[in-house]
Write a protein that binds this DNA or RNA. Structure first.
Lengths: 338, 338
DNA sequence: CTTTGGCACTCGCGACTGCTGAGTGCCAGG
DNA sequence: CCTGGCACTCAGCAGTCGCGAGTGCCAAAG
């Protein structure tokens, strides 16, 4: 097992490296941290840490830099989450309070996160999976054409065009609308299928085909739109990545363009609590030199979606984690209010 | 005025430079193009072209590269628009035909453009300015809470929550809905204000406040949502920019994150026909080393929005213009069908 | 007046060299 | 177990140098 002091040395190395972006040597360490021992001792500790795989030398006669494993240990045992300052909190609150609709909330959140962490921010739209139905509207646009509008409790609106097998009268449509709403409003998406299963039967023969079609479309919408959308921002921060640009940045940009990849990335994060994936812990190999900090957020106690940031493995973990957690909390509040 | 051959030399320089990304010298030119004259003659021509500001030397004893002015001349007089090959056209058609809704159309278009041109693609959502109202829906969510849903002929749906000054009955609401629709359906956004101006007066005293609020919100939505949204993609292609990365790419990424900047950029493009803005012709200085190729597209003969690409000034103009034009055309078709 | 070959000149770039200093590992003594 | 000392390593920087691509100018030819 590693002694207390060796862990302290590792912590110092991570902190210095994150600050300076340069390999850190034994002498510099003793000068910038009150370790109470000499460089020589630190060298021995460093040798041990390297032996265990927590740090590495880019080349002989250079200082050490933390490995993914080193960061992992740092995050798990050596660092806390650095809370934001009061002014920062107030700024977040003010900024988010100005949002007018869901799109705006997500947009602002992305910009906020990117600015606070100076990294790439990813925010998932509140998922429909755990949402409840606020209202279902049916509009007759043409004799045999109906538009279905679905409004969720998270403020999201989805619409579908439906071509009916037969024309349906305004009265029947109003009837369907009323019955549909009385059954599903306030209910969870997952519960809707059984709730409407027998609805078609109660209609006149001539309208049954149309009713079935409408119901089918509704269920389809529920399922399809469960696949989440997301928004990203702060890609300009990628330029602070490293010095060997094209090679580092390219795969990251490519990964960020693939929504599927990002959704999987966020999906891999734990449902509750903060998840930090470091370097090669990320499945997607374009992101092997990045770390992802993600957390769930929601209007209530339950998470309805996730948000997070993507940055270089060499990042300020406590600060980033603090910012991510704070933003998630405030977004949750905003959603609860609206 | 420049002689025919000198223009030919300029064309050759642009083509070679775009291909090789390296300054092109007189000898190489005569070898790769059948100019029918010796390097010495070409040197004289190059000196003249440089005198006029069409080409420049990065440093003494290097070849020449085109200036913005040189590219301008090339685009205006020396190059045509290179049509796509039949397989390419078919691929576009197939890819776009798979789209299920407006979001999907725009999303696919962005990816398509980015892939075809290997540059950053920007696609504006069909504007509401020239759209007409397909339907307005009012939903009572709570006694004094109404949701306004606006559906446009381009398939877009906008919603707003309205807190009413006083509760409004279902009957009055239905009445309002009916009257509102009878007046505005099929009309252009710009015409709506006068069409509904006197609507509040025809209601009972007790409902007037609410009716006014609803109408105000509707007008607000029309104005606000006239500001367009857009989607971008292909940022990974930025890595092919130049060799001096951070400096070149950073401002571009920043500009791309600012939707306002991009909207202005597209807004500057001519309403009809293709617009090419080269280097410093772009107002935003972050984009001074990029060129923008933009074109309007629409379901009918009139353009409802624009799309285009952003790339290095050193780009294959004929090819890019061909791709942009073709994509715009097909997207127009798709929109017309739906 | 235009074209052409010749020629001297410029200068960026890559290869090579030597030096410096940060950093290391090891060891012997406290 | 800690520490100071010492020899060793090596990346990075600055300086030097030769090459070669490319130029501008000129005088002769078309």
């Amino acid at each position: 097992m590693l002694s207390e002091r060796r862990l302290e040395v590792l912590r110092a190395i991570v902190q210095d490296y994150v600050g300076t972006e340069e390999p850190v040597g034994s002498k510099a360490l003793t000068e910038r941290h009150r370790l109470g021992v000499s460089p020589a001792t630190v060298r021995n500790d460093m040798a041990a840490l390297e032996e265990e795989g927590f740090i590495a030398q880019p080349h002989t006669s250079a200082g050490r830099i933390p490995t993914d494993k080193g960061y992992r240990l740092f995050v798990d045992r050596l660092a806390g989450v650095k809370p934001l300052s009061t002014p920062e909190r107030r700024a977040i609150q003010n900024f988010l309070d100005g949002a007018v609709d869901l799109d705006d909330v997500v947009g602002r959140t992305v910009r906020l996160l990117a600015q606070l962490t100076r990294q790439v921010a990813v925010v998932q739209y509140p998922s429909l999976t755990r949402s409840t139905v606020r209202h279902v509207e049916l509009l007759s646009l043409a004799p045999a054409r109906v538009m279905l509008v679905l409004i969720t409790d998270t403020g999201r609106v989805e619409q579908r065009m439906i071509d009916c097998p037969a024309p349906i009268g305004e009265i029947s449509l109003a009837d369907l609308r009323a019955r549909l709403n009385s059954r599903v409003v306030g209910r969870r998406f997952t519960d809707v299928p059984q709730l409407v299963a027998d609805l078609a039967e109660s209609f006149e023969q001539e309208d049954r085909g149309t009713v079935s079609t409408v119901l089918a479309t509704l269920l389809e919408t529920l399922v399809e739109e469960t696949e989440e959308r997301l928004m990203i921002g702060g890609t300009a921060n990628l330029t602070r990545f490293g010095h060997d640009f094209p090679l580092t940045i390219r795969p990251v940009l490519e990964a960020l363009e693939e929504q599927v990849v990002l959704l999987k990335l966020l999906g891999e994060a734990k449902d509750s609590g903060m998840t930090v994936r470091i370097g090669h812990e990320n499945a997607h190999e374009g992101l092997n030199s990045t770390s992802v900090v993600a957390v769930g957020y929601g209007s209530g106690d339950e998470a309805v979606a996730k948000l997070g940031v993507v940055g270089p493995t060499r990042m300020d973990y406590p600060g980033t984690m603090g910012a991510v957690r704070a933003v998630a909390r405030y977004v949750g509040q905003i959603l609860a209010e609206s």
